[in-house]
């Protein structure tokens, strides 16, 4: 097979800024999903009446459907919904000028929240309820017991799954190209289409993700090790 190395290098260079968009999406989604997912995880672990059932419906709905379908739904329905809302509120803004990355933020936040809610629920159930009882016994409230004792322990139990889900999220952001978000995949695909050299473009994507994921995993592993220091004992 003859590869056009010059083209490959050129595309690699062009696609490089796409990493920033990828990070941007992953960061926004995580920033939304960690706190909301934690709250949902606690609601599920404590089986808070009604809220727990609602959370479960949300989680099964999101986790039970393909991400690409959620993307199509949001990308095709949100603009019209937002247009109606804006019109009602009297806001003069053409919704169709909105940067499509906003839809990527919405979709990935929604799906990552569902993933992390389950991660946190599982992690909280690994903390024995006697830890909370001990907190009560020294005059702490349930809220204080969760904040100081249960959640820190749950967090370190959750770290490996948390790291996995973040790398999964980064990989999944490649689907944002379907919303015409100019991240790595979209840029490389566009170049490939222009030159009809798809193989080179895809190899570029492959290479970039390998480097990206490898780096992210290394960084997360280091953070994980630090956070788990107390458990080494």
């Amino acid at each position: 097979m003859n590869l056009d190395y010059d083209f490959m290098l050129e595309t690699l260079w062009l696609a490089l800024p796409g990493i920033l968009v990828t990070f941007e999406i992953a960061l926004v989604a995580s920033a939304a999903a960690v706190p909301v997912g934690l709250v949902l995880g606690i609601i599920r672990a404590r089986r808070v009446p009604l809220l727990s059932q609602l959370a479960r419906v949300y989680i099964s709905f999101i986790r039970g459907t393909p991400l690409i379908l959620q993307i199509f739904l949001v990308y095709n329905s949100f603009p019209s919904i937002l247009a109606v809302v804006f019109a009602r509120l009297g806001v003069e803004y053409n919704i169709f000028n909105l940067n499509p990355v906003v839809y990527a933020f919405i979709v990935f936040s929604i799906s990552e929240t569902a993933v992390l809610a389950e991660v946190f629920r599982a992690a909280i159930t690994t903390v024995d309820k006697s830890q909370l009882e001990a907190a009560y016994s020294v005059g702490m409230t349930a809220f204080q017991g969760y904040r100081r004792i249960v959640i820190p322990q749950a967090m370190s139990a959750a770290l490996p799954s948390l790291c996995n889900s973040i790398t999964d999220l980064i990989k999944a952001t490649s689907l944002a190209f379907t919303m015409s978000v100019m991240e790595i995949t979209a840029i490389a695909k566009k170049q490939g289409a222009m030159k009809l050299s798809f193989i080179e473009a895809y190899l570029d994507i492959f290479l970039l993700y390998c480097i990206l994921i490898f780096t992210v995993e290394k960084v997360l592993k280091i953070l994980e090790k630090r956070a788990r220091a107390y458990q080494q004992a």
Binding site: S130, Q131, E133, A134, A135, Y136, S137, V138, G139, R148, I149, P152, Q153, S156, Y230
Partner: peptide
């Protein structure tokens, strides 16, 4: 609970402290 404290059979120390 602030007037009564408890020593547990399995100690139940806070593992992260």
């Amino acid at each position: 609970r602030r007037k009564i404290s408890f020593v547990f059979q399995n100690y139940n120390l806070f593992n992260n402290k």
